[in-house]
Amino acid sequence: MVMREPVVRVFSAVTGETLSVLGTVFLLSTSVARLMTLVSQQCGLPVSSFRLSSPTGLQLYDWNRLHDYAIDLGATLRLDTWDGWAEFLRGCFLGHRLTVQRHLSRERPVMRFQLRVALYIAASLGHLDLAGWLLERGVRVIEPVGVHPYREWCHQTAHPDVAKCPAVASIERGQLTILKLFIASSVLTLACRDPQGRDPLRIALQYGHRECVSHLATRLCSVVVLPGMALPMRTYLQIKGWVRLGQRRAASRHCMGLNRAPFRTRVGDTVLVDDFTLPKMSSKPRRSEAKAGIRIPWLQQLNVAQTLARRSAQHIG
């Protein structure tokens, strides 16, 4: 029996709004991962950009079930994002490109992750200007959002939806204009897959987005004209896929296989260990020094200290 009242509510620390998750009472016995997927689809955030916690403040982990946390019918959960990300995500929700630019991280791996998150949100909410700017920055529409660099080491326990790409998000939400932009940017959008292995046309059919279905079917039935030949779109997509796979393998060999390893954390990088390190997903605002981008390497710190010591000695003398 479908409930008229929400099974659970989710308060978003990013927007200050409360989402209502509808369904049956059996949702309380499902996995946290399933709830994360439902919340992601409703609010437009990729699952790797937020966490959920119980009314008592306990973090909900994907591999557990909701009843493990004694969550009652109608309970209000809390959605938090990475510390220092609230302003960035609000800019993404509003489609404000300048706000997104201003609040990008100074850490390059984190910034690249943020750009993928931003394109995913733009695809979900239909922000054409933001999506176009991100494509100009080189963000790929068929590249999975993935996980935060702080959690790359634990990729084996990551939520399956971290493999979802912005192109899939646009189809799930029925964003036809964004979908057309993505196809124009990369024809391989027509051949992308979601974590369950479904192609774009099947996804659009399942969600009942008729305009997306019509556009995808038209493009898939079209012909690609090349010098001296004409190929059906499906054949052309297969060839493009083979070429892309060959390029990736060649790049992996050239880099001595480093690109094949999902574990890219290096000595000195921040890593998060569940239940052992303090969470960095409590929606805390950015500190003033982080906003200004002030980062002084240890060698520069040493030089500054030596300069101050010399000036102090000269003053005393």
Rank of each mutant, 00 (worst) to 15 (best):
D161F: 01
S124P: 07
A169R: 15
P166W: 07
H155I: 12
G138T: 09
H159D: 02
S170Q: 10
V145I: 12
D129N: 08
V162K: 00
I142W: 03
H127Y: 12
H159C: 04
G132Q: 15
A163L: 12
H155T: 06
Q156R: 15
R137W: 05
V145Q: 03
L134R: 05
V162N: 01
W133T: 02
V141I: 12
L125N: 00
P144I: 03
V162W: 00
G126S: 09
E136M: 00
A123K: 12
V141Q: 12
H155E: 10
L130H: 00
L125Y: 03
Q156M: 03
E143F: 02
H159A: 00
A163E: 09
G146M: 05
I171T: 15
A169L: 11
P166N: 05
L134Y: 02
I171C: 13
H148K: 01
C165P: 10
I171K: 03
S170C: 13
P144A: 05
L130R: 00
P166V: 14
V141L: 12
P149E: 06
S124L: 05
A163W: 03
G138M: 08
V145Y: 02
E136Q: 09
K164F: 03
W133K: 01
S124K: 13
I171V: 14
S170N: 11
G132C: 10
A158I: 10
V147Y: 03
V141C: 15
Q156N: 01
C154S: 15
H148R: 05
R140N: 06
P166G: 10
L128C: 14
H127I: 14
R140L: 09
I142C: 10
D129R: 10
Y150K: 14
L128I: 13
Q156I: 07
A169C: 15
P166E: 10
A169K: 11
P160W: 04
L130C: 06
Y150V: 12
C165A: 14
V147Q: 07
G146T: 05
G132L: 12
G126A: 04
L135M: 14
A131G: 07
V168M: 09
S124Y: 10
T157D: 15
L134K: 07
V139H: 01
S170F: 04
T157F: 12
V147F: 01
Q156K: 15
K164S: 14
Q156L: 13
L130P: 00
L135H: 06
L134Q: 04
H155R: 09
R140H: 07
S170G: 13
H127M: 12
L128P: 04
R140W: 01
L128S: 14
C154M: 14
V139G: 00
C154Y: 10
L135T: 02
V168P: 04
A163D: 11
V162F: 02
R140T: 13
Q156F: 09
D129S: 08
P166Y: 10
P144E: 13
V147G: 02
I171P: 11
E136N: 06
G126N: 11
R151E: 15
H159T: 00
V168A: 13
G146E: 06
D161I: 04
G132I: 04
G146W: 08
P144R: 01
V162L: 02
C154T: 08
